[in-house]
């Protein structure tokens, strides 16, 4: 995606923090249950924010590269995969078709 090297120490630290934080989140559910229950509304909002973050990630990683539009080959490949996913094709098929479509377009000279 990007040509810049990934700085290992801060990335590793952030990953370990994510692991620790995730474990605490997993731990706090059963612990909280004894005292109070999370309102259904808050639960729904957590779920929605996860989808929003992932939707934004899918869009930006499909369409942009280094702050600018990538060529049409990648988004078209993702679109092909998306259509198959919508029609409930198996996960592996979705991923392979996306890559193959992009590869074929590039072979044909589409950037």
């Amino acid at each position: 995606m990007s040509d810049t090297a990934i700085p290992i120490p801060p990335t590793l630290a952030a990953m370990l923090a994510l692991a620790a934080g995730t474990f605490l989140l997993r731990l706090s559910g059963p612990a909280l249950r004894a005292r109070c229950t999370l309102p259904e509304r808050a639960e729904k909002l957590l779920e929605v924010s996860a989808v929003l973050l992932l939707a934004a990630l899918a869009a930006t990683s499909a369409l942009t590269e280094d702050h600018a539009f990538t060529g049409p080959a990648r988004p078209l490949g993702v679109l092909a995969g998306g259509v198959l996913a919508w029609r409930r094709a198996p996960f592996l098929v979705v991923v392979l078709v996306a890559a193959a479509t992009t590869a074929l377009l590039r072979l044909a000279g589409v950037p």
Binding site: I6, A14, L25, P30, A31, L32, L38, L46, L53
Partner: peptide, 29 residues
């Protein structure tokens, strides 16, 4: 994805934690 796009580890950590916040209601279930 965020790190690969050149984003900061902090942004990646925050986004990851937010997505994993759903484990709290899982634990209640």
């Amino acid at each position: 994805g965020i790190i690969a796009a050149g984003g900061s580890p902090i942004a990646a950590l925050l986004a990851g934690l937010l997505v994993n916040a759903r484990h709290l209601p899982f634990g209640l279930a």
